[in-house]
């Protein structure tokens, strides 16, 4: 089922701007290959879960899947045919803030071909363009 925080400081939050690129969480840190977002989106928890299920279904018990994003932003939505005003609406879903460059998933312990095949299935579930990346050179 969809992910969400266990405890929050505030029930609702402002929308905030989404005009930046990823400056952290934008490289493969734990696994061998990663699925990187090329666009920005508020990624709902149920979509992350759908991606996880797609990858696990393909991988079976091979390899380890690491989810790099967590939906900690409450997104509220007014019901249909409701007049404006009367305060902020109730929380509809929880979303992860995904920016261009954000690493969504990582896989460890499998070959590149298997990781690619798994991430193709995950990318089909994502509402953004994604690509497969490996570990980057470091010094």
């Amino acid at each position: 089922m969809a992910l969400m925080p266990k405890r929050v400081k505030f029930r609702k939050e402002f929308r905030r701007v989404r005009d930046r690129r990823a400056t952290k969480g934008n490289y493969v840190a734990y696994g061998d290959f990663g699925l990187q977002s090329l666009e920005r989106v508020w990624l709902p928890g149920r979509v992350i879960e759908a991606g996880r299920v797609a990858a696990q279904h393909f991988l079976k018990r091979e390899g380890k899947l690491i989810i790099r994003v967590f939906p900690d932003k409450p997104i509220s939505k007014k019901p249909l045919e409701t007049r404006m005003g009367t305060g902020k609406a109730e929380v509809e879903y929880w979303a992860a803030r995904v920016k261009p460059g954000t690493m969504l998933f990582e896989i460890a312990g499998v070959s590149e071909a298997v990781a690619k095949a798994a991430f193709v299935r995950v990318a089909m579930k994502m509402p953004v363009k994604c690509r497969l990346v490996g570990r980057r050179v470091s010094v």
Partner: peptide, 8 residues
């Protein structure tokens, strides 16, 4: 080394 936002 500094990378761009996509790490490429």
């Amino acid at each position: 080394i500094q990378f761009d936002y996509l790490g490429d």
